[in-house]
């Protein structure tokens, strides 16, 4: 009887691995099928797509670089860059501030009741899952081509994202100490101030910095749609065929993103 048990076990193990291999093969086949179907349907020429890459590089090296004339535009570009950076910082910080309060209502540790939590998570999901460019297009109807449109588009996306991550942060880092402070008889707001905020602070700062970086990148795209900031500069130069100035805009954006990332890494280390 023992021997038959061992045999059955062995069969099961064999079965387990064959099944795993089969399901993987199946998955790969479906993926290949899907890719092939879409290529056929969109009439995409794979060979032509890849061979045009060197051509694109050749064009870029011939035309898409900042020259001496475009450097004269640098002050205007930098001014626009300042607008974009300020907008990103303002939207990231203020949206995070608002998100923190909603996250407190949404987190299991600190929620007042289940319904607040459901509503808070629902709001977060809604705001987060509409892309920043979609928000910009929607808001264009209300605010037209102004900084407000870009600001609110970034604000909403940051808000949705921050609510989500802060809910998780609060539940992850402060559940234990919140329990301890509740047991001492501390009031709700004292618990938030003395336990939740100090526990979450490093993550909070880290995520705000992350959102500032993300927003600067998004602001460029949003600027093209809303006609503000550095995105707009790029759009104008590009459409007026001033490729040298347009490439200068790209260089400036890349450098500023690097700079911001370096600064925020320093701040992160200091806070932790």
């Amino acid at each position: 009887m023992n021997l038959s048990l061992i045999l059955v076990n062995k069969m099961h193990k064999l079965d387990f691995f064959t099944q795993k291999r089969l399901s993987f093969t199946f998955f790969v086949l479906i993926l290949i099928g899907l890719t092939y179907a879409t290529v056929i349907y969109t009439e995409y020429n794979v060979a032509k797509g890849f061979t045009s890459i060197p051509k694109a590089i050749r064009w870029a090296t011939a035309n898409f670089y900042p020259d001496a004339a475009s450097l004269k535009k640098l002050p205007t570009i930098l001014l626009k860059l300042r607008d974009t950076i300020l907008m990103s910082v303002a939207s990231a910080t203020i949206a995070s501030f608002c998100a923190f309060f909603v996250a407190i209502l949404g987190a299991q540790t600190t929620r007042i009741n289940v319904w607040f939590s459901v509503i808070a998570r629902g709001i977060a999901t809604l705001f987060r899952n509409i892309d920043v460019s979609a928000w910009a297009l929607i808001l264009l109807f209300s605010f037209g081509q102004s900084s407000f449109t870009g600001y609110f588009a970034l604000f909403f996306v940051t808000f949705g994202f921050m609510v989500r991550v802060l809910i998780e942060t609060i539940d992850e880092v402060s559940t234990d100490s919140v329990e301890a402070l509740r047991a001492t008889g501390a009031s709700y707001f004292a618990i938030i101030a003395q336990s939740v905020i100090p526990s979450c602070l490093p993550q909070l700062v880290s995520w705000v910095l992350f959102m500032i970086e993300t927003n600067i990148r998004s602001a460029t795209l949003v600027g093209i749609l809303t006609g503000t900031g550095i995105g707009y500069s790029f759009d104008i130069y590009y459409k007026s065929l001033n490729y040298h100035a347009a490439s200068l805009v790209i260089v400036v954006i890349v450098l500023s993103v690097f700079a911001i990332e370096a600064v925020s890494n320093r701040i992160r280390r200091a806070v932790l």
């Binding site: 234990d176 301890a180 509740r182 001492t184 008889g185």
Partner: peptide, 20 residues
Amino acid sequence: LRTHRTQIGMIFQHYNLVNR
């Protein structure tokens, strides 16, 4: 309830301190 809790101290397996 708060007054009731002030009279009872509680100690936990995972200490439940604010580590930072």
